[in-house]
Design a protein around this nucleic acid. Structure first.
Length: 495
RNA sequence: GGUCACGUGGCCGAGUGGCUAGGCAGUGGUCUGCAAAACCAUUUACAGCGGUUCGAAUCCGCUCGUGACCUCCA
């Protein structure tokens, strides 16, 4: 297996050969959702990108520990001293316990992840489950002199940190620029500098989510949870940390500062940031009101959608683009993706019926080397910073060979059994295991279709074309096609 | 305003110094009772201007345009 994986490291802004700290083990941490509302398709894109990364690392036989958190406290609506917690706010609005909100949206999130065929993480820790650890690291940062307490809140002293370390390494920012550009927000009197961020916040009397601490009742700051949970389960320095590009600053920058402040070590070797999903060129976000929910996309029940699109079509749509590029949503692009996915899925279906049999074909060196190259290129593409778009292109080319075999245009003996097996295995493992594109339609329809096909065959032999056309129409109305080939009759998903 | 990306054919999107990306749509062909599917072939490109180079979509500069981050955000 070709195993020279390169990853674009956001920290160095370069493509680097991936070297795990402790092979074959790999630690992968991805910032999960804040469960105060439904996840939208933009969120889904990020988690899907990391799903493929996780799947590919496993395919390369790395022993991955994939940690993706659930943020259930500490994420504030704004940065003011009396800033409301997102979950607490929603709980008040709906008159529910905060943990009911958390449970509801966490459940929804899991359903969506499952629907798009994302593998679950190995550990899914929550912020509220790690309050003790967050208090401990806050104490440590106070001890080390990187933090200060004011009125029951504890803040990280960014300017002091920047004197001996580089705050802004990840996002490429200079503290002077930040200082001159930071907008003045109301109610930040407790902070020495607007750049400082909260490690621990004092809870006002009406604040629901609160825990006792050495500084009084309060709750942890948002950035702290990821530092605590990533290092707890993956070590003080671990391999890969991922998230959406919009988390680069300030969230991930703060994580680095906290971790370095607490342990003296950089927390992460490779940072991976995925790009945004856009709608008409603009970032999909709840505040802009241009976001689709997964359910809306699938049902087509949204004013901007002309029709519904199946989860696997959407997955394919996203994988046709590199994770680091923006991807724009449009009905045209989605329709094209739906057809493309069906075509690939039909390949998966065809594969089940293909078995190598020695026939009268003559070994064809050119075809053989072509197939070998395509298979190798699948690995090379994925090794090149998880280039799924390029990998998909190889799969389409492999599919042509598979379809040629199926239709009798290419003979088995032209490629030989070894190459045949390689082709079949490569196609299947890249489609199913690595890209996570499974067959969407239930296989249980098979016996009924086969019975219809028997009648169809008989009608064709008897030249009863009226009945032939009728059967085609019946299947077509169920979005299935009949394929007449030299080698026989088969069915396929309509494209 | 600061920082950083991006601008590829009808649409979506890879590529990043010389070698066909791919998908969708279109056109021609093979096959077929007719189709469809499948396969084969094929048309429309690298925002503009200048520079480096034997050679640039790819590197450099400028111009124009779009976006992201700088505030919660995947």
């Amino acid at each position: 297996m070709i195993k020279d994986l390169k990853i674009h490291n956001s920290l160095t802004r370069k493509k680097e050969v991936f070297k795990p700290i402790n092979p074959p083990f790999v630690g992968l941490y991805v910032c999960g959702p804040t469960v105060y509302s439904d996840v939208h398709m933009g969120n889904v894109r990020t988690f899907m990108s990391f799903d493929v990364i996780n799947r590919y690392l496993r395919h390369l036989d790395y022993k991955v520990r994939y940690v993706r958190n659930i943020t259930d406290v500490g994420h504030l609506v704004n940065d003011a001293d009396d800033g409301e917690d997102k979950i607490g706010k929603k709980a008040k609005l709906e008159n529910l316990e905060p943990m009911e909100i958390v449970q509801r949206y966490a459940n929804g999130f899991h359903q969506v992840m499952d629907m798009f065929n994302n593998l679950p993480p190995d550990i899914e820790p929550s912020a509220t489950g790690h309050i003790v650890e967050q208090i401990e690291i806050t104490k440590k940062l106070l001890e080390n002199g990187w933090a200060y307490e004011k009125n029951g809140s504890v803040y990280f002293n960014v300017e002091k940190y920047n004197n001996s370390h580089e705050y802004g390494v990840l996002s490429g920012r200079k503290i002077e620029d930040l200082q001159s550009n930071t907008r003045t927000l109301d109610g930040q009197d407790d902070k020495k500098s607007p750049l400082d961020f909260a490690l621990w916040k004092r809870a006002s009397d009406e604040h629901i989510m609160r825990w006792p601490s050495p500084w009084g009742d309060g709750f942890p700051g948002w950035h702290l949870e990821c530092t605590v949970m990533s290092t707890k389960y993956l070590g003080e320095t671990f391999d890969i940390h991922g998230g959406g590009m919009d988390l680069k600053f300030p969230h991930h920058e703060c994580e680095i500062a906290q971790a370095v402040g607490a342990t003296g070590k950089p927390p992460v070797n490779y940072w991976i940031h995925t790009n945004m999903l856009t709608v008409n060129g603009q970032k999909m976000s709840k505040s802009l009101g241009n976001s689709f929910l997964p359910t809306e996309l699938i049902s087509g029940d949204h004013e901007m959608l002309e029709q519904g699109y199946s989860p696997m079509s959407v997955r394919f749509f996203m994988l046709q683009t590199h994770y680091s590029s923006t991807l724009d949503f449009s009905n045209e692009a989605l329709k094209a993706a739906q057809k493309g996915y069906r075509k690939l899925a039909n390949g998966l279906k065809v594969l089940k019926t293909l078995h190598f049999v020695a026939d009268d074909g003559v070994e064809n060196e050119q075809t053989i080397s072509q197939i070998n190259q395509l298979c190798d290129e699948c690995y090379r593409s994925m090794n090149d910073d998880f280039n799924t778009a390029k990998t998909v292109a190889q799969l389409f080319d492999l599919l042509k060979k598979i379809n040629s075999l199926h239709a009798g245009q290419l003979k088995y003996s032209e490629i030989g059994s070894a190459v045949f097996e390689k082709m079949v295995n490569t196609y299947r493992s890249f489609m199913v295991d690595i890209l996570g594109l499974k067959e969407e339609n239930p296989a249980e329809v098979d016996p009924i279709i086969n019975a219809l096909l028997d009648i169809y065959r008989k009608a064709k032999v008897e030249k009863n074309y009226a009945q032939v056309d009728e059967i085609r129409a019946i299947l077509k109305s169920n979005k299935l096609l009949i394929k007449d080939m030299k080698t026989g009759v088969d069915w396929a998903y309509e494209e």
